[in-house]
Design a protein around this nucleic acid. Structure first.
Length: 1152
RNA sequence: GGGCGCAUAGCUCAGUUGGCUAGAGCGCAGCUCUGAUAAAGCUGAGGUCCUUGGUUCGAAUCCAAGUGCGCCCA
């Protein structure tokens, strides 16, 4: 067995692609999974939150997907059986919008006319295109995920992808199983009487022609400026008097029904020109949005708002005539601004369909809007924006609608699905409410009527469609809801879940407490076909719970539907009969909310309706992980609600542990956006490199990071905080971790290879190995302990930070650096063997420890360390299926016998002492290459003392001194001890008397106390309140440097350095300089490590010549000089003229 | 207006049973090393651990109030 040579400059992405091929060849994943099932290992149930299969995955997806893979790998290595099922979220508006973009469709009419003149065929074509888009991107995301290193039961071949979604390896929310399982959920809701249909004024996207749910609305707020108007409403029966109202949506004035005041506010009656206005007292002078303006929370180009008073002053001034309480104004009637419109005269409101419902359900009196105009009371009216009088259009706003119902006002719903005014609105009919020209027309009209008092640009945070960014309008529409009257049941199961971080519980409960009923319908095409069949004659409806039930109930259309997925338009053809009336019932055309699709997966993917035994085995999931922000009201909510309902009457939580993480930001903490140029594509980060625009606007070309580096970067991050992701952090991590690990590994392999190290040789007993070996093995066990503790707690960050410290500080920077000579030396023996064996153990263990996080690098290291580097590169034929991957190995377990806590602590002390020694040199400005005679150490405590005794040689080498001695303070006057109380041990014992003890201790003779403590005797203090007894451990003895010494000191430990450079020391220092020059030349000449040389040196200075002469053997040994030449070398010579301490030296060498 | 969270060096952040002189990386200044390392190491400057109050022998850490910021809800 032998180790392959390891290059120190590696193309990591290329190497990862090699590993992917290796895994395929040896069928690494399949064999792992098969073994889990053969052995029927204990189950660890992971449930994948479905990724939206609508676009290629970005680096932000890679964070969560890394966690998913890391924990799956960890639990596999610790002997568990897993499901390995990835999920894709398939249905919903987001897919429709992208398909529309591709086809350049602009409206629902366009969709329904895709096949001209054939609505059914059009919808069929559109839905099929949606399915195809999902397949396309699911496949791309699959390939990307494989590239990230995720081990899942992937669909890989064309054959896999040709199967229906329900029969593939990954789950797809568009599968029949998923859809029908949601049907069964809705049926359960209905059986408890929770499904209902309601009219509501809701946010509506006129481009998508669809209602936007409460959940979705939050995703699309944007700062925009609208033209806001001050309009007067003439009061009836009070000649010359007006309500002054203000609105940011002038188009809603057409549908005005009432005006609201706050009954507890004071209103002013003011004279302005010919007219008298009523306006809230505070509103007249309020500096509206002043804070926002100051903070720059503003729309560029929009001027600061003027107070209302200023608007009036600008137009001739005003005079306050009197005051009136809001309560006194209730009931006043007025003339609306658009009372001439036919719609304003329609009894019960407008249009007729709505008026019918209004009448039937008794929302309003039998009056038309223009007759209903009056002042109503509303506590929520404030005086910090507008005029304190709010115009109410029940068909155009959510609160307006609620108020309208309470006040029995007839609603006017002026817009159609595309935001265009219906007939009945005079000059507005046929115009789009969003159109700028429409607003112009409205303002002109109001001006003509003399009602317009002022116009301004008003910036505010206004909801937009979260998919297409169109401004939302409010429309009065009917939608389907699940009543959430059972929210307490959902809240109860939240307590059975471990939330990481903990406050997730509070946030979820907060959401559940405050959420409204769940709107589940959407008037679109691609999605869950809501299984609700309605008898439009009577309003009766039924919810169908399964395909079988539908078949039994079908009275028409079944044969047309048979053979299709339960989607539009196919399922729309099935009709059933209303058993009560005998009428035909049709499916409502609406599709479902996509969070239903994702929320049902603990049931649909675990075969709840088809294989209950399987479900019992895997439900609930042990673990789910997703990004926290947003999911409380989305996936988590849907999961919890649906599971509560499905397992009712004994509700069960669908998962045991929820691990949440924050958001991916760019390296400066800013949101990533393609338009900002700071977004990083996944392939760029993994393989091909990427370009980002920096803060200065300049483009920066960045090399790829590799999947491993990305994974480590994600794992080491604090999941509670947003991660700053980009080339800067990646580069930093590469330098301090990945390269350190790789170079250590390369160092081992390259020397082991040259030396013919045999890893199967009988091990040198650990107790016979040097301190350094036992120390690194001990610390390795501590690292394993950390891993074993933190992985199951899903605190992978804690492990990564410790691991970085181990690799960087301990292994690379200390163990390897201190041990180099043991590997270099030519003679073989137990010491050298021990060094190899120790480093080999450490590296193999690290490969296994790191395997879940950096699966590629771990595999490469592992295979080579096991002597199988060639297997990575080429097939071994049959034998491939026997090759063990690092991911087949059990996860390391700590070996308590190897842990030596004292040794670890002593080594830490040593590191500090060395650092102090170097600091001492630094103060006298003598470079480390120059040897010095002596270092005296006055240790502050036992630890430092032991470190000096144990590791004197290490200190000498690192600090480059001839001798290190302990200065025993007991022997001489050099040091004086001081004594302090050890607060950590004495504090709990003494409690409030601790101050007293400190005072008493300070009064004692430190020499005597120190002596007692050294002998292990206790100490009795006499205090005014009685005696206090201190154990030796309660007193800390510190030694202090005497006056007059130049030294360095840290925590009581004093180092004294002999800074005199004698001639022999000087010569030695020069010799080292000479060696360094020769080594440089060797390197420049591209010599191999083991090459011997002939050497010619020509100094121009006596001192240098003496140094060379005296240290000839040393120089020869260090530089592998086989021949000293007295004359210039001939051919194939590398030569250089260097300066050593300012003196010229000519060097020539040649490989021999 | 309500809920949740955060506030530690110029920047990005570690710091969980409360304990001695609060740490790292980047950046800055200086020095150095270099045949594993296109690397790296060392030293230094830089901190009212947001403010105030409380609990405690002792608070970056626990509690309360305030200020600022973020997210969620209304």
């Amino acid at each position: 067995m032998s180790f392959a040579k390891v290059e120190t400059q590696v193309d990591f992405p290329a190497q990862e692609r090699l590993v992917l091929r290796f895994w395929d060849r040896i069928r690494a994943f399949e064999r792992l999974w098969a073994r889990q099932r053969e052995l029927d290992l204990p189950r660890w149930s992971f449930l994948d939150g479905p990724i939206t299969a609508n676009n290629p995955m970005g680096v932000h997806h890679a964070w969560g997907r890394t966690y998913k893979d890391v924990f799956q790998r960890y639990f596999a290595m610790t002997g568990h059986q897993l499901r390995y099922q990835n999920g894709f979220d398939c249905q919903g508006l987001w897919v429709e919008v992208e398909v529309e973009k591709e086809l350049q469709l602009r409206s629902k009419q366009d969709i329904e006319n895709l096949v001209p003149g054939d609505r059914f065929a059009s919808i069929e074509k559109f839905v099929n295109l949606c399915k195809q888009r999902v397949d396309k991107f699911a496949r791309i995301q699959t390939e990307q995920s494989i590239r990230l290193g995720m081990w899942m039961d992937w669909d890989r071949t064309d054959e896999d992808w040709a199967r229906p979604p329900g029969q593939r390896h990954s789950y797809f929310t568009m599968s029949e199983e998923n859809n029908y399982t949601i049907w069964s959920f809705l049926k359960k809701c209905h059986s408890r009487g929770l499904i209902y249909r309601a009219y509501d004024a809701m946010p509506w996207c006129p481009r998508c022609a669809v209602g936007i749910s409460q959940m979705e609305m939050h995703e699309g707020y944007q700062m925009v400026a609208h033209r806001a108007v001050f309009v007067r409403f003439p009061l009836r029966g009070r000649r010359g008097e007006n309500l002054l109202v203000w609105t940011t949506t002038p188009w809603t004035l057409s549908s005005n029904v009432a005006a609201a005041v706050n009954p507890s506010l004071t209103y002013l009656k003011i004279q302005h020109g010919e007219q008298v206005y009523y306006v809230a007292k505070g509103a007249l002078t309020a500096n509206r949005l002043e804070e926002d303006f100051k903070r720059g929370n503003w729309v560029p180009g929009v001027p600061k708002l003027k107070p209302l008073a200023q608007h009036l002053k600008a137009k001739g001034g005003y005079a306050v005539l009197g005051e009136v309480r809001g309560a006194e104004m209730i009931g006043w009637s007025y003339d609306g601004p658009w009372d001439e419109l036919p719609a304003q005269s329609a009894p019960f409101g407008f249009p007729a369909e709505i008026a019918q419902v209004v009448q039937k359900q008794g929302w309003s009196e039998a009056v038309a809007a223009r007759e209903a105009h009056r002042v109503i009371a509303w506590e929520a009216v404030g005086e910090t924006e507008g005029t304190g009088i709010v115009h109410i259009a029940p068909g155009c706003g959510k609160e307006d609608f609620e108020l309208g119902k309470a006040e029995k006002l007839p609603p006017l719903a002026p817009l159609d699905e595309e935001g265009v005014f219906l007939d009945g609105f005079g000059p507005l009919s046929g115009r789009s409410a969003l159109d700028h020209a429409t607003t112009d027309l409205i303002l002109d009209n109001l001006k003509e009527k003399g009602l317009l008092v002022a116009v301004e640009k008003y910036p505010h945070n206004y909801p937009h469609c979260w998919r297409c960014k169109t401004e939302l309008l409010f429309r009065l529409v009917d939608e389907w809801y699940i009543s959430m009257s059972w929210r307490d049941e959902i809240m109860r199961i939240c307590h059975d879940i471990t939330w990481i971080p903990e406050d997730g519980l509070k946030r979820e409960l907060d959401w559940l407490r405050n959420m409204g009923d769940w709107m589940i319908s959407k008037k679109r095409y691609w999605g869950l076909a809501l299984p609700i069949w309605v008898d439009e004659q009577t309003g009766d409806f039924e919810v169908i719970g399964s395909r079988e039930e539908l078949r039994e109930r079908a009275v028409a259309g079944w044969s047309e539907f048979e053979g299709h997925t339960p989607h539009r338009p196919w399922v729309d053809q099935v009709k059933i009969r209303n058993p009560r009336t005998g009428n035909i019932m049709s499916r409502i055309p609406d599709v479902g909310n996509p969070w239903l699709d994702a929320g049902i997966v603990p049931f649909s993917t675990m075969k709840y309706n088809t294989d209950r035994a399987y479900w019992e085995k895997w439900f609930p999931a042990d673990f789910i992980t997703e990004s926290f922000p947003g999911q409380f009201r989305n996936w988590f909510y849907a999961l919890l609600a649906m599971s509560t309902m499905m397992t009712w009457p004994k509700p069960r939580a669908p998962f045991k542990t929820l691990f949440g993480y924050a958001l991916v930001r760019d390296q400066y903490g800013e949101e990533m956006h393609k338009s900002k140029g700071n977004a990083i594509p996944f392939e760029g980060a993994a393989d091909s490199g990427y370009v980002i625009r920096g803060k200065d606007g300049k483009e920066q070309h960045c090399p790829p990071m590799s999947a491993d580096l990305m994974r480590w970067l994600y794992c080491r991050a604090n999941p509670n905080n947003n991660i700053n992701f980009g080339p800067g952090p990646a580069e930093e991590l590469r330098n301090k971790f990945t390269l350190k690990l790789w170079n250590t590994y390369a160092f081992f392999c390259n020397y082991a290879r040259l030396d013919g190290f045999d890893p199967d040789a009988p091990p040198v007993p650990v107790e016979q190995r040097p301190h350094l070996d036992r120390w690194i093995l001990s610390d390795l066990q501590l690292l394993i302990q950390t891993a074993r503790k933190e992985f199951p707690r899903f605190n992978v960050m804690a492990f990564c930070l410790k691991a970085e410290e181990f690799v960087d500080d301990k292994l690379s920077n200390w163990y390897v650096r201190r041990n180099r000579r043991r590997f270099w030396k030519s003679e073989k023996g137990p010491d050298k063997l021990a060094a190899y064996q120790t480093l080999h153990t450490v590296l193999v263990t690290l490969a296994r420890l790191f395997a879940p996080i950096i699966p590629f690098l771990s595999e490469v290291m592992y295979q080579n360390l096991m002597g199988r580097a060639d297997a990575l590169v080429r097939s071994r034929g049959e034998e491939d299926l026997q090759i063990e991957s690092v991911h087949h190995c059990p996860f390391p377990e700590p070996d308590a016998a190897l842990i030596d806590a004292d040794l670890s602590a002593d080594m830490e002390a040593l590191l500090r002492l060395v650092s102090l020694g170097l600091a001492a040199r630094n103060t006298v400005k003598i470079k480390v290459r120059q040897p010095l005679a002596e270092l005296k150490v006055q240790p502050a405590d036992e630890r430092d003392r032991r470190a000096v005794e144990r590791f004197a040689d290490q200190i000498c080498e690192e600090v480059n001194i001839k001798k290190v001695t302990l200065h025993d303070p007991g022997l001489g006057p050099l040091a004086a001890p001081t004594i302090v109380l050890n607060l950590k041990s004495a504090g709990p014992k003494l409690g409030a008397r601790i101050k007293e003890a400190q005072m008493l201790l300070a009064a004692l003779n430190p020499q005597e106390v120190a002596a007692r403590v050294r002998q292990g005797l206790s100490l009795e203090l006499r205090g005014p309140d009685g005696p206090l007894v201190l154990e030796p451990g309660d007193v800390q003895v510190t030694l202090q440097a005497p006056e007059g010494w130049t030294a360095v000191e840290d925590r009581g430990t004093v180092l004294l350095l002999d800074a005199r450079i004698t001639e022999p020391l000087k010569l030695e220092g020069l010799a080292r300089e000479v060696v360094r020059s020769i080594q440089n030349l060797r390197k420049e000449a591209n010599l191999e490590l083991e090459d011997r040389i002939a050497l010619f040196l020509q100094p121009t200075n006596d001192l240098l010549a003496t140094a060379i002469d005296r240290h000839r053997d040393y120089i020869a040994a260090e530089t592998l000089t086989a021949e000293w030449s007295a004359t210039r070398l001939g051919t194939a010579t590398a030569s250089a003229d260097v300066r050593i301490e300012g003196q010229a030296l000519h060097v020539e060498l040649r490989k021999v």
